[in-house]
Structures are given as structure tokens and as C-alpha cells.
């Protein structure tokens, strides 16, 4: 029902929340919301809400990696967040989202892994878990924003005698960049950002562009549909403008 209405509105150049095609819904960010986690952030974009939590754990560095750091990103589309989310193993969408956030942070070399080295055999591993609390579209932009905020506020606990002393903080995780995603949709000849859950199901295609603060591209993924070859340049321009705006919400 709502999808049909949303489709009719889009055809008339309108959106459900009476916003422009290139406007985000209201964004709210609250950091350090999980006392148990080393870093955390709760991000709302309209009715979409995600929490990113970071745990640092003692890990062995990967020997064959370009960088010595350990970074694991996981996403949980918990059944609390939407009627269609089911318990059980992660869906392909959840896996894709986690891998995209991982790619964004890894490609942009955002984390200063040097600071997380304890010895040649031991490092602080960075485990980012993204928990969707309410799904009303645009989970990727929200998740990347939450992950970056959580990283930016992540505390490093003391290491002593083979274990971590969680209540003794020795410093903050250092981030070198601020990469974010802007997901852009094509509908007929128009472009849209920040789709709600109904819009996501009726647009022609969606593409995620990950950019650093200097507009270096660090991740791209065609999420659904097909895109006219000649539209790519315009899509990159929109992503530059919108990620710049989103960076105002990194605290």
C-alpha cells in the first residue's frame, strides 16, 4: 500500500516526508551509549536507528595482510528492527553491509594500527558490531556514520600480564580519516538520497559511494539495479556534497 503511494509521489517529484530528493531526514548522533563497549555510537536518520559497538580484544596479527592490524566488522539485522527480519544466520544483505563498512574503513586506512600493537605477536584487535535497532531504509549510510563515530570515541584498555584491564584506560584509538558512505538511488531521470524503506523497494537502482574527507574514493558498490554509464559522474558529485554534509555528524 505505502509503496504504491510512495511510487506515485516520486513520479510527481515528491517524497513522503515532504523533503527534497537530495535531502537527508533528521540525523541524531549519540556517542558512548554502551558502557561495556570500548567505543559506541547510536545513530538515527529519521526512523532508522543503528548502534555500532566496538570491542577491543587481544589478537594475533594476520601475517599475510598488507597491514598488521586486526579489524573485523559484523552486522546483525536483529528481528526487533523490522517485521521481515528473521532470527538465524545473517542474511546476504547483512553480510554485504558488514563487508562494505569493513571495506570503507580498511581501504581508507582510517585506523592507526601502529598504536594498537602490543608486541610482534600480539595486538589489540578491533571488532565492530553493527546492530540495527529500527530499519526504515538507508542502513548503510547510518551504519558507516555510527562505525566512524564509535571509532572516533574508542578507548584503549590497559594490557597487563596477558590480559586486558577493562577499567584502566591508557588512551584513545587514533583515526586518521573520516570516510563515509552516501547511497544514491536513481529513479527515472532523477537522483535521490537517504531512502526510507518504501522508497528502497520502488527505485530503479541504488549505488553506495564511500569517500574520504578529501573526496578520494575508497569504496563503491552497486547495491541493486543497473545504472546508465553516463550517470556515474553526476552520482560522484552528489556523493561529494552529501558526505561533506554527513561529516558534520562525526563527533
Amino acid at each position: 500500500m505505502l509503496e504504491k503511494l510512495v511510487l506515485e509521489l516520486l513520479k510527481k517529484g515528491k517524497r513522503l516526508e515532504k523533503r527534497g530528493f537530495l535531502d537527508y531526514r533528521e540525523i541524531k548522533v549519540e556517542n558512548n551509549v554502551i558502557p561495556r563497549a570500548e567505543g559506541s555510537s547510536r545513530v538515527k536518520i529519521g526512523n532508522t536507528e543503528v548502534i555500532a559497538g566496538i570491542k577491543l580484544e587481544l589478537s594475533e596479527p594476520f601475517k599475510d595482510e598488507k597491514e598488521s592490524g586486526v579489524l573485523i566488522v559484523n552486522a546483525e539485522f536483529a528481528p526487533i528492527a523490522h517485521a521481515t527480519f528473521e532470527p538465524g544466520p545473517p542474511s546476504e544483505e547483512a553480510i554485504e553491509l558488514a563487508r562494505l563498512v569493513d571495506r570503507l574503513i580498511r581501504s581508507s586506512k582510517t585506523i592507526n594500527f601502529e598504536k594498537l600493537k602490543i608486541s610482534d605477536e600480539l595486538v589489540y584487535g578491533v571488532f565492530i558490531d553493527i546492530h540495527v535497532i529500527n530499519h526504515d531504509g538507508n542502513l548503510l549510510d547510518a551504519s558507516a556514520l555510527a562505525a566512524l563515530n564509535a571509532l572516533n570515541n574508542c578507548k584503549i584498555p590497559k594490557y597487563e600480564d596477558g590480559k586486558l584491564i577493562r577499567n584502566e584506560i591508557i588512551g584513545k584509538l587514533e583515526i586518521k580519516h573520516k570516510p563515509l558512505y552516501c547511497t544514491i538511488a536513481c529513479f527515472e531521470d532523477k537522483f535521490l538520497v537517504d531512502l526510507n524503506q518504501y522508497e528502497e523497494n520502488v527505485v530503479d537502482s541504488k549505488i553506495a559511494i564511500g569517500l574520504k574527507e578529501d573526496n578520494t574514493i575508497c569504496a563503491i558498490q552497486l547495491l541493486s539495479g543497473k545504472i546508465d554509464y553516463d550517470k556515474i559522474e553526476k552520482i560522484l558529485e552528489i556523493a561529494e556534497e552529501k558526505t561533506k554534509y554527513l561529516r558534520n555528524f562525526v563527533f
Binding site: S108, I207, T216, I217, A219, Q221, L222, D228, Y229, E233
Partner: peptide
């Protein structure tokens, strides 16, 4: 991946860092 008949991109994934001009040239 693309369909040359219709000039449509059907698969696009990017990993690593690249400037816009370089990316457009790569395309």
C-alpha cells in the same frame, strides 16, 4: 560489468583508494 547495447552498468564494486579523475578514466 556492463551491457554494451543499453550502455548500462550491472556490476560495480570498488575497493582501495582512487581519485575521481582516475576512476572515470578506469571506467
Amino acid at each position: 560489468a556492463m551491457l554494451l547495447n543499453t550502455n548500462e552498468i550491472v556490476l560495480l564494486q570498488l575497493d582501495g583508494e582512487i581519485k575521481k579523475d582516475e576512476f572515470l578514466y578506469a571506467l
